[in-house]
Design a protein around this nucleic acid. Structure first.
Lengths: 241, 241
DNA sequence: GGCACAGTTCGGCGTCCGCCGAAGAGTGCC
DNA sequence: GGCACTCTTCGGCGGACGCCGAACTGTGCC
């Protein structure tokens, strides 16, 4: 008997896309790039522990498949996620794949990086981890963000961004606010154009700074003061445990 | 040099999850189950054009991987997507994998089913296709749904559901409204608890009916009248082309 | 020009995995 | 009880794919 839709092309395309992430090395590349920054091919190869030649082939597939974008500068090949939708795809798959319980964290080094990531990190272009969740919570309780009927900024929320000096384009196709499931807190944090703008502002204003070379982010003392003043966030709820 | 996080388990889990969908036959199973109903193993095997033994192995993997749920009744094994999140995952991957241009539609039979699907279909538990998009559009222009600051019902929207006699639970963890990218219209339609409730009501009230055995759905004459009366939708914008 | 370095291409190796048919287990109908 | 049917398990086959090292290309620095 024939297939439900003859010579189904949708299944083949879905399988081809999923196959890009079905390899552990390629998956590691995409997870590393979830910090939203561009990495060189060599950095990715070292990070994943494979030979440069192997990485080169994998990166070629990921770019050809539309998941990654490349930028060549001199003898370097910089790679980043192809865009917000690609990042969202990887995020959601990673969140679904995350185990229900806490991650094991075998070594001391792994435990300390896991701790730093749980405290705060970037998730492509917005803030995640305890830091991102506390901000999202505070915005919700202050009536800047509504989560009960969906996930959207309120008029007060728009005004709050205005007062911060961060313009938001409501006419853009990209949704202003979107929930992104946090894989350490297991609750949604603010993503979308507003989440990206807030993260950019937090970095530029010195509210946060990167820790080490990875995705981990830490709120600075000024940042904690600003979050307390503007959102009523208790600094201990982010920094402490 | 070591991996960024030693013996990274996240990459392995992401790869394992993606591998479930990286096979064309398994992908076809998941797409078929996107209609939200339960199919038997044999039906899925015939639909995908593989031997029952092959299907059995694939289904075992999909269930073990947490993407599908099974229910055994007598000698039948009924399979459905494991839940809303699994459906959302498959939807988004399928939407990302969909080609930018229109699908080719080689045979006459394929063209006619593609046409029926484009007109209206279920997307797991809510309405999609032209029918779903027109409803979402109408709800937005009538102020029942806000898309400019995210994707959320308004107070008027809550009242509209109340008038319809469809209760919505705002206290649930599941978001009431969520945008789901429509792969034929390439715009978001209403998903989430409200989308599911509306779809259920439309089926029970006889506004829509299934066409054939697949995902395709058609608005009935009463349905078109109801949509015109309650949302001001022009019937020709759905049914005609 | 010459060297160091980033990245790519190629050949070969080993493994994994999807496919089938045949045989078996369990269920329902008569 | 016996038959028909659905699904599962197993063995074996073949292709696909990820890995590496070695050789090669191209860039930048001195």
């Amino acid at each position: 008997m024939a297939r439900t839709t003859p010579s189904e092309p949708a299944a083949a395309r879905l399988a081809a896309l999923a196959a890009l992430l079905a390899d552990e090395t390629r998956a590691a590349f995409c997870l590393a790039l979830l910090d939203g920054r561009a990495w060189t091919a060599g950095e990715l190869a070292r990070g994943a522990g494979v030979a440069p030649s192997t990485a080169s082939e994998h990166l070629g597939k990921l770019v050809a498949g539309g998941l990654l974008a490349e930028e060549r500068q001199g003898r370097h090949r910089y790679l980043r996620l192809a865009g917000g939708r690609a990042a969202q795809l990887v995020e959601e798959l990673a969140a679904y794949a995350a185990p229900g319980g806490a991650p094991p964290a075998r070594s001391l080094r792994a435990a300390s990086t896991a701790h730093a990531l749980a405290r705060g990190r970037t998730c492509y272009d917005h803030l995640a981890g305890r830091l991102g969740i506390r901000i999202t919570e505070a915005m919700t309780t202050r009536g800047l963000l509504r989560q009960d009927t969906g996930f959207a900024l309120t008029e007060d929320g728009l005004a709050w961004f205005g007062a911060l000096g961060v313009p938001l384009d409501t006419a853009s196709r990209r949704p202003l606010a979107r929930g992104c499931l946090d894989w350490t807190e297991r609750r949604p944090h603010l993503a979308g154009a507003a989440g990206a703008a807030l993260c950019r502002h937090a970095m530029e204003a010195g509210w946060c700074e990167r820790v080490g070379t990875g995705r981990a982010v830490r709120a600075t003392p000024e940042g904690l003061r600003a979050l307390t003043a503007r959102l009523g966030i208790d600094p201990a709820s982010i920094d402490g445990r």
